[in-house]
């Protein structure tokens, strides 16, 4: 399906915090209580609408384990948005946020929009990290913040869409160079037709593409 823009996202965070479940809830609107773990990187996509424009989100879901870091790092490059996820029922996943953030900032482009997500908000009784702590961390590091539940779907749409809105605004403000794909933004085929700068390379093949 034709889109005006394509935004590339990456989902990062400790293992088992629900990264793949958030993606599955967002792309397929379903929840898998026992989700098989992600080895390397997986990929999902969905179309959303912002400001009347069709935007395709291309989302890279990464393995959380430390050993895979050298592999997943290369996917930061060329991401316009990142969802940094922790599990509100596991304090250690919150404690590791700084490392994740440093890693992300170091390997991504400086304009990348980062959304901090405290996932598993449905498990209130097992909560170890207060919402206020998440908010404070986000404020301190200039991130957007939300608590979500991949299980109940609470705030999942919002998390992905608000990130996209932020990126979209940055485009409007001219912060992003949209002709540079390294920024994780691609102009869709319908726009490309009127935008000769994008005609080269694979542009022509895009018209029929886009399965998602």
């Amino acid at each position: 399906m034709a889109y005006a823009y394509l935004f590339k996202y990456i989902i990062i965070g400790d293992t088992g915090v629900g990264k793949s479940c958030l993606l599955l809830q967002f792309t397929d609107k379903r929840f898998q209580p026992v989700h098989d773990l992600t080895i390397g990187v997986e990929f999902g996509a969905r179309m959303i609408t912002i400001d009347g424009k069709q935007i395709k989100l291309q989302i890279w879901d990464t393995a959380g384990q430390e050993s895979f870091r050298s592999i997943t790092r290369s996917y930061y490059r060329g991401a316009a948005g990142a969802l940094l996820v922790y599990d509100i029922t596991r304090r250690d996943t919150f404690n590791h946020l700084t490392t994740w953030l440093e890693d992300a900032r170091q390997h991504s482009n400086s304009n990348m929009v980062i959304m901090l997500i405290g996932n598993k908000s449905d498990l209130e009784s097992r909560r170890e990290v207060k919402k206020e702590e998440g908010e404070a961390f986000a404020r301190e590091h200039g991130l957007i913040f939300m608590e979500t539940s991949a299980k109940t779907a609470s705030n999942v749409e919002e998390a992905f869409i608000n990130t996209a809105k932020e990126i979209y605004e940055k485009i409007q403000e001219g912060v992003f160079d949209i002709n540079n794909e390294a920024n994780g933004i691609k102009i869709g085929p319908q726009h490309a037709a009127t935008n000769s700068t994008l005609a080269g390379g694979q542009g022509g093949q895009q018209a029929g593409g886009g399965c998602c």
């Binding site: 990187v41 997986e42 990929f43 996509a45 093949q205 895009q206 886009g210």
Partner: peptide, 12 residues
Amino acid sequence: ECDMAMMHHLLS
């Protein structure tokens, strides 16, 4: 489609 994401998705 000659696209990294699509190809990765197909092959994986």
